[in-house]
């Protein structure tokens, strides 16, 4: 950690729906901070976490900040590795076209393999 230019592989595993708990928003903030330090960041959305990327979120009625537009800003932060679990999408009747950013849909085995390759895996 002491070398100034050491780049680590960080994976953020997002498994919670966006507004019921604070996890999704907290994850997003940590992701943006990590990216500012030029780390190799990848994001996984599985289980209810896939709901974070659902298009058309309108939060006026619940008086919460709609943070979903920020996922579209990730590209500008050079965060381009967004993986979504195929089975989680299917279990929720959501397709890739329902999502507000471009993602790579992966099966469980491929996700597990990616997970194993990380230096740091953080759950949200």
């Amino acid at each position: 950690m002491s070398e100034g230019n050491s780049i680590k592989k960080f994976m953020f595993v997002n498994r919670k729906a966006p507004y019921g708990t604070i996890y999704a928003l907290e994850s997003l903030e940590v992701v943006l901070i990590t990216a500012a330090f030029d780390q190799d960041v990848s994001l996984v959305f599985m289980d209810d976490g896939v709901y974070q990327l659902k298009k058309g979120q309108q939060t006026k009625g619940i008086e919460c900040k709609n943070f979903s537009p920020a996922y579209r800003a990730l590209e500008g932060y050079d965060i381009e590795k967004l993986y979504v679990d195929k089975e989680s999408l299917e279990a929720r009747g959501i397709s890739e076209e329902d999502l507000l950013v471009d993602v790579t849909v992966l099966g469980a085995a491929e996700l597990g393999e990616l997970m194993n390759q990380q230096d740091v895996v953080l759950s949200f």
């Binding site: 943006l32 500012a36 900040k65 943070f67 537009p69 920020a70 579209r72 800003a73």
Partner: peptide, 8 residues
């Protein structure tokens, strides 16, 4: 307005 965050 577009992304709801202040950019780094």
């Amino acid at each position: 307005e577009e992304y709801q965050i202040a950019p780094a």
